[in-house]
């Protein structure tokens, strides 16, 4: 298996691998997290659909640069469209003010409704694509390295790393337990909801007992490697921020502040051009 340009990422099974030949790969995970959060905040501050469209195009460019798989985009787009349909539906139908554009019985589409609906759709799409950017440019281990950079207490970092590492084992154990139950005649698909829930509980008992035994083994292993020694820990990986990371983070913050000023001081970026 050649993983030359691919590396395992979060959300295994859904996206699976990330590309290592993109400009984003060498950035610190903290930067990628900051970009995602700050740009989401900017998008939330803007109501006017026209600047929102610009933001959406910007996020699309980000995703293309990150070489995210099309599969991810399709799934997220459909999810967002489904969610926004509901919001748009309520906004479009129940807003009574504004010029009527189209009417069919009780269904009344107004200009105000259309504009608000478009705004919501663009916001949700932008944020969804920012999430794709986040997930497809970070591997599990990058998230943990990011936690180091943020100076999170080591005990939490250790738990995060162990959880990521153990997730696959947990899945395998769950599957094996279900197989073992099925092999003794327990049919998980039979019975009403209550009976099925009860069957599911019978899977929990072996899972917990296996978990307890594994924790015991893990404890022995880490203790004999001086875990919890009280000594100041060092870090093998270089987990600091580079100049480019600082530049990007500061740039994003500046954009956020600028958006805030434009919105609340100058009254731009809102629904005011439309008289709403």
């Amino acid at each position: 298996m050649s993983t030359g340009r691919l590396s395992k990422s979060t959300v295994k099974g859904f996206i699976g691998y990330i590309r290592t030949d993109t400009p984003f790969f060498s950035l610190s995970p903290v930067t990628k997290l900051a970009v995602t959060l700050i740009l989401s905040a900017i998008v939330l501050l803007i109501d006017d659909p026209r600047p929102l469209l610009v933001c959406l195009i910007f996020t699309l460019v980000l995703i293309l640069l990150a070489k995210a798989p099309i599969k991810a985009m399709k799934l997220y787009t459909i999810g967002v469209l489904w969610m926004s349909c509901m919001c748009i539906f309520f906004n479009v139908i129940f807003r009574q003010s504004g010029d009527v554009v189209f009417q069919y019985g009780l269904l009344r589409v107004t200009t105000e409704g259309t504009i608000r609906g478009a705004s919501i759709l663009l916001k949700l799409l932008s944020m969804a694509y920012l999430t794709i950017f986040f997930v497809t440019s970070l591997r599990d281990r990058d998230i943990v390295y990011g936690l180091y950079t943020l100076r999170v207490p080591y005990s939490m970092i250790f738990v995060a790393a162990l959880t990521f590492r153990s997730w696959g084992l947990f899945q395998t154990d769950l599957d094996t337990i279900r197989d073992a139950m099925t092999s003794r005649g327990l049919d998980f698909n039979k019975g009403n909801a209550f009976a099925r829930a009860k069957k599911f509980v019978s899977v929990l008992v072996p899972l917990i007992s296996i978990l307890v035994k594994r924790i015991d083994d893990i404890t022995k292993s880490v203790e004999t490697r001086a875990f919890g020694s009280g000594i100041q820990r060092t870090y093998y990986h270089n987990i600091g921020l580079e100049h480019i990371d600082y530049a990007i983070i500061v740039g994003c913050f500046a954009a956020l502040i600028l958006t805030g000023i434009l919105r609340y001081y100058y009254g731009l970026l809102s629904f005011s051009p439309y008289g709403l």
Partner: peptide, 26 residues
Amino acid sequence: NPESQFVQMTVVDNIVFGPENLGISP
């Protein structure tokens, strides 16, 4: 048990885990 001794996400992280705990220089 080969699984329970692997407490980090990658091979290198697992190998350096012990020395890191002891504060050995990178």
